[in-house]
């Protein structure tokens, strides 16, 4: 497999995951803001902070309101991580790697791209937003399903899995961080307990993990337990432990990966050592931040091992 093709396949998976995650996130926020008491200061702008996109946002918009945030995340071509930008990049990547992904991938990507561009205006308005976001999520799942059911488990498959897992793990750390910071912002009044539960419930929902969480932990929705679950559970596909495991398995199937595999094995053993689930404050936020940095380091190792060298 060409190094260039490996790189593009990896990024296809990352952007595809990003599109789905962004749509999920906005959908959950829609619900969340209906549920929280009015005095809770928990705004749409958190979605910008969570994506570390404050600077890009401020260059484009003056007002940090719902409309601008949603527009920035879904429809802004100047935002590299927006749904439209990610889809454009998916299209460019698939277009140049059509020979290694299932044939219909290209058609499905075009369909999704057309759907988003045709319905974008309605999607930004709140009335039709839910339906629009559902359409995006379904479109992504259709592509994932196609890959899952018809793609041989070759090198391209492994690069798709690695890309998807890194992006997932990254998004999970960001959503957890958003949860922690929202809880920290709560005023300690009568509503606080209730609000905490709503926030953590929505953290789970934004990762599609609420049902799995309840079945696995058999406890109520509490911060320490949710964070522990989303970091360390081995079988739920969006946890950090599971994502790292998939990266390790796929890397071990690819050529010249001994060093990376050894590194990942070591990481698996001690990555959760510093997590303190009892102290849900700045310490946890620092830890999540370190996790993000670690994921960036894994990306660098993958790139230098298999991707083309740019002079």
């Amino acid at each position: 497999m060409l190094s260039k093709v490996a790189e593009r396949t990896y990024w296809t998976a990352r952007y595809l995951e990003r599109v789905e995650n962004t749509a999920r996130l906005v959908r959950v926020y829609d619900n969340l803001l209906f549920d929280l008491p009015r005095n809770v200061n928990f705004g749409w702008y958190n979605l910008i902070t969570l994506n570390s996109a404050q600077q890009e946002f401020e260059e484009r918009y003056k007002v940090q309101d719902e409309r601008n945030v949603v527009k920035f995340l879904l429809g802004d071509e100047h935002n590299y991580s927006s749904v439209v930008s990610s889809l454009k990049l998916i299209r460019e990547n698939v277009r140049t790697t059509r020979d290694v992904v299932p044939e219909e991938t290209w058609e499905l990507v075009n369909e999704l791209n057309l759907y988003v561009n045709d319905n974008l205006q309605q999607g930004i308005n709140r009335r039709k937003r839910h339906e629009f976001l559902d359409g995006i999520i379904k479109g992504c799942q259709q592509i994932q399903g196609l890959i899952y059911t018809t793609m041989p488990h070759d090198a391209a498959w492994d690069f798709l899995r690695i890309g998807r897992s890194i992006e997932r793990a990254d998004m999970t750390t960001r959503i957890l961080d958003a949860g922690v910071s929202a809880v920290l912002q709560l005023v300690d009044d009568d509503n606080a307990v209730n609000s905490r539960q709503i926030i953590w419930g929505n953290v789970l929902r934004s990762l599609g993990a609420d049902q799995a969480y309840r079945r696995t932990t058999r406890t109520s929705v509490r911060g320490d337990s949710v964070v522990h679950y989303l970091l360390e559970d081995k079988v739920f596909p969006r946890t950090i432990a599971h994502s790292l495991y998939i990266i390790l398995i796929s890397a071990s199937r690819l050529p010249r990966s001994h060093e990376l595999v050894a590194y990942m094995e070591e990481l698996q053993l001690n990555i959760f050592d510093d997590a303190d689930y009892e102290q849900q404050g700045e310490h946890l936020r620092d830890y999540l931040n370190d996790l993000q940095t670690e994921l960036g380091a894994i990306h660098e190792k993958i790139a230098s091992l298999w991707f083309p060298i740019y002079e």
Binding site: M1, L2, S3, W306, P308
Partner: peptide, 12 residues
């Protein structure tokens, strides 16, 4: 290299 053409792949 050595008058032969090679492509750059993930295996070298």
């Amino acid at each position: 290299q050595d008058d032969c053409v090679f492509m750059k792949t993930i295996s070298g």
